[in-house]
Design a protein around this nucleic acid. Structure first.
Lengths: 200, 200
DNA sequence: ACCTGAACACCGTTCAAGT
DNA sequence: ACCTGAACACCGTTCAAGT
């Protein structure tokens, strides 16, 4: 960490990076703009050159999370070509794994911390694209795996189950059901049953 | 709102009430302990007589939410006696309806705002009891509605799907899938498919 | 026992000034 | 163009003092 008075590089990216790290290590409550600035080696007013306010910085952190999710989903199409069942299963697994690995960011992405009315274009695009990747994954099972149901029904059912398990796991609330169940095993079983309900 | 210097009544309850109201109208970010105190007509230091800190007050708000959920679930056993399918369906509907009606509190209950490591006894008990009510509801379908699966599997699958839909709806993220789908109709379809997967 | 008012360290945001 | 440092209103928390 060089401590020059001026940050000669991509300060914007450095701030998003620092905020993401602080978020996960200290929690959302302890994440202040001033601490982020300090971690990036700039004054507390410098972030305002790159973000309108704290909310905008948090949106950028969330957007990065959605892009990671999108990348992971798109990767699976290549890795399991011709096996839509496996693709969908791994997609849901990745969704849960991401939420468990970065619970604070997951809550920021899905949580009620950000105001939906003030979504930046960047966040909006990141959400749309990761969501499109999800729909595309599910679609590859149409006519092969699933009964003739509206795409909307397939996506809604698989997404709800996956999202629910992911957030329960991220919040540590799965332990209230079963102290011995880890999220990896749980998503396997849940998806098995959900697949049964949608199978042709 | 009387404005006496001393609050002669149940200040603790008044603070939880004021905090719940402020939370829903202004959002979690705008919810300060000082504003809660002002709304209850006491000085900013008065809440510390009843709560160790802000976190403890928020826990009390969350606990109230879990108790509401529990009451709603237990109500259904009486209202639809002998119809376990309806009981479970209405339970999931109530879960989603509560999250949609009070999205900010739902995020507080399930969200990553509260630190799981610091759960008060009150909150712990409220979670356990509402969760027990949920398990009891699902159990009434065992041997009648569902295949012979571990209770854990039944609860996990139904709960994940319901929880996921509830939080997606609360966060306004269902709109990204389908602008015309309201949560009421969505939970109906999702649960239909999930039931199919668990049916005997 | 219950509450107040002053105090402290910290925060988000703004803005004139510096390079 | 990009960043700093002072300033302001607000916050969570503590504590001696009041009734």
């Amino acid at each position: 960490m060089t401590r020059r008075p001026y940050h000669h590089g991509d300060l914007r990216a450095a701030l998003v990076e620092a905020a993401s790290a602080l978020l996960e290590t200290e929690g959302a409550a302890a994440l202040s703009l001033r601490r982020v600035a300090r971690a990036a080696g700039v004054s507390h007013a410098a972030p305002y050159r790159h973000f309108r306010d704290k909310h905008a910085l948090l949106e950028a952190v969330a957007a990065a999370g959605f892009r990671v999710l999108e990348d992971r989903l798109e990767d699976l199409e290549q890795r399991f070509t011709g096996d839509p069942r496996r693709q969908i299963l791994e997609a849901c697994r990745a969704y849960v794994a991401e939420a468990v690995a970065r619970p604070e960011r997951a809550h920021l992405m899905f949580g009620g911390i950000l105001d939906p009315a003030r979504r930046s274009d960047e966040l909006h695009a990141a959400i749309e694209e990761s969501f499109a990747a999800l729909v595309a994954t599910v679609r590859r099972g149409e006519g092969v795996l699933f009964r003739d149901l509206p795409t909307r029904d397939l996506v809604l059912t698989l997404w709800s189950a996956t999202h629910g398990l992911a957030l329960l796991a991220a919040a540590g609330q799965l332990h209230d059901l079963d102290r011995t169940t880890d999220p990896e095993a749980a998503i396997e079983r849940v998806l098995g049953h959900v697949f049964d309900g949608l199978a042709r």
